[in-house]
Amino acid sequence: MIRAVIDADRCEGHARCVARAPELFDVDDEGKSFVLTGEIPPELAGAAAAAAQACPERAIFLHND
C-alpha cells in the first residue's frame, strides 16, 4: 500500500492536491491540506502521484509501505 504524508509546515494552502484527488485530500479550517485516508489503494496511486506533483511547495510525500 501507499501512504501519503503532508508536511504542514510546507503547505501553503493552494489546495492543488484537493483539485487533483478530492477522494484523498481535503482542506482544514486554516486552509491547510490534509490526507483523508491512511492507506491509498492501488487504483488511486496515480491520483496521489498527480496530487504530489501538483503541489508547488512539494509538501506531499508518498511512501510505499
Results as ranks from 00 to 15, higher is better:
32 K>L: 15
65 D>S: 11
18 V>R: 00
43 E>R: 06
44 L>I: 02
21 A>H: 02
50 A>P: 04
20 R>L: 06
38 G>L: 06
2 I>N: 09
20 R>A: 15
24 L>G: 12
29 D>H: 06
26 D>P: 13
22 P>H: 03
59 A>R: 05
10 R>Q: 15
37 T>R: 07
41 P>Q: 08
55 C>T: 01
31 G>L: 06
25 F>A: 05
52 A>N: 00
6 I>T: 09
34 F>I: 01
16 R>H: 15
38 G>Q: 13
7 D>Q: 03
38 G>D: 15
46 G>D: 09
13 G>K: 07
53 Q>I: 02
18 V>G: 00
25 F>H: 06
13 G>L: 11
21 A>W: 02
44 L>H: 09
30 E>D: 14
1 M>F: 03
64 N>G: 05
60 I>Q: 09
55 C>S: 01
36 L>Q: 13
41 P>F: 03
40 I>P: 03
51 A>G: 07
21 A>K: 03
44 L>R: 09
41 P>Y: 03
31 G>R: 03
17 C>H: 02
36 L>E: 10
54 A>F: 01
15 A>T: 14
32 K>S: 07
2 I>L: 15
57 E>G: 02
32 K>I: 06
36 L>A: 09
65 D>L: 11
3 R>K: 14
33 S>K: 01
14 H>I: 03
3 R>S: 11
9 D>C: 10
35 V>I: 08
51 A>C: 12
11 C>Y: 00
12 E>T: 14
58 R>L: 10
13 G>D: 11
37 T>M: 04
50 A>H: 01
64 N>D: 14
60 I>M: 10
56 P>D: 08
32 K>R: 10
22 P>T: 01
27 V>P: 10
39 E>Q: 02
46 G>F: 04
64 N>K: 10
36 L>G: 06
19 A>M: 10
50 A>C: 03
48 A>G: 00
41 P>E: 09
35 V>Q: 05
5 V>Q: 14
23 E>I: 07
6 I>A: 06
42 P>M: 02
48 A>S: 00
16 R>N: 15
21 A>L: 04
28 D>V: 06
15 A>D: 12
5 V>D: 09
59 A>C: 12
24 L>E: 14
18 V>W: 00
58 R>T: 12
55 C>Q: 00
59 A>K: 04
32 K>Q: 09
22 P>F: 04
61 F>G: 12
24 L>Y: 08
24 L>H: 11
41 P>D: 10
29 D>T: 05
23 E>W: 07
20 R>C: 12
27 V>I: 15
60 I>P: 15
49 A>V: 09
46 G>P: 07
44 L>T: 02
24 L>C: 14
63 H>C: 02
57 E>R: 15
56 P>L: 08
58 R>D: 12
19 A>F: 12
1 M>L: 04
10 R>F: 11
1 M>A: 07
1 M>S: 06
18 V>H: 01
31 G>P: 10
40 I>N: 02
12 E>L: 14
35 V>N: 08
60 I>L: 10
17 C>N: 03
58 R>K: 13
54 A>W: 01
38 G>T: 12
14 H>N: 08
9 D>P: 04
9 D>T: 14
33 S>M: 00
3 R>C: 13
43 E>T: 02
53 Q>Y: 02
40 I>L: 04
47 A>Y: 07
63 H>M: 08
